[in-house]
Lab assay of single mutants.
Amino acid sequence: MDLSALRVEEVQNVINAMQKILECPICLELIKEPVSTKCDHIFCKFCMLKLLNQKKGPSQCPLCKNDITKRSLQESTRFSQLVEELLKIICAFQLDTGLE
C-alpha cells in the first residue's frame, strides 16, 4: 500500500467515525433535522415525532428512558451545521477519490 492509499484510508476512517457520531440512534442514518431532548440526546426530528405520536402523554428517550414530550424537543442548529459540513466533506472525498 503506497502512502497516498494509506492517507485515503485514514481520511475514510475519519469520515466513517464522524458519520457514526452523527447517526440517529433510532433510524441509524445520518441525522436529518436534528432535535435534542432535555437529556441532551440527539435524534432526527421525524424519528422523534413518530415516537411521540405512538402514544398519549410523555414518551421515553430511547437511550436513557427519561420522559420526553414534543414541547421539550429543541432544534439543534449546531448539529445541523455539523451534518451539512460532513456531507460536503463526503462529497469532496468522493469527487477526489472516486470512492463511496
Rank of each mutant, 00 (worst) to 15 (best):
K32M: 08
L3V: 09
L95I: 03
F93V: 04
A92V: 04
K50Q: 05
L6R: 14
L49M: 15
C27F: 00
V11L: 03
L22I: 03
K20E: 05
L99S: 05
R71K: 14
L22V: 03
M48P: 03
A92S: 12
L51P: 07
P62L: 11
Q19H: 11
K45T: 14
T77P: 07
K65N: 14
K55Q: 06
R78I: 15
E29V: 10
R7G: 06
G98D: 15
N66T: 12
L95P: 00
N53K: 07
L82V: 03
T97R: 09
Q94H: 06
I21P: 06
R78G: 05
S36F: 11
E29Q: 07
V35P: 02
S72P: 06
S80T: 11
I68T: 03
L6F: 09
I31L: 10
K50N: 11
E85P: 03
V83G: 10
I68M: 08
H41R: 02
S59A: 05
L51R: 05
I21M: 05
A92T: 05
K65Q: 09
L22S: 02
G57R: 06
K55M: 06
V8L: 10
Q94P: 03
G98S: 04
F93P: 01
K38T: 13
T37I: 13
S80G: 14
A17G: 15
R71T: 14
D2V: 04
Q94R: 04
D67N: 05
D40A: 10
M18T: 01
C44Y: 00
K45N: 14
I15L: 07
N13D: 12
K50T: 05
S59T: 12
R78K: 05
L87W: 14
A92D: 03
L30F: 06
Q19K: 04
L3P: 12
E84Q: 12
D67V: 04
K38R: 10
Q81L: 10
T77K: 14
C27R: 00
N13S: 13
L51V: 08
V11G: 03
L51I: 12
L86V: 04
F43S: 15
S72G: 06
Q94L: 08
T97I: 04
L6H: 07
K56Q: 05
S36P: 04
Q60P: 10
P34S: 00
C24W: 00
K88Q: 05
R78T: 14
K56P: 14
I21F: 02
F93Y: 06
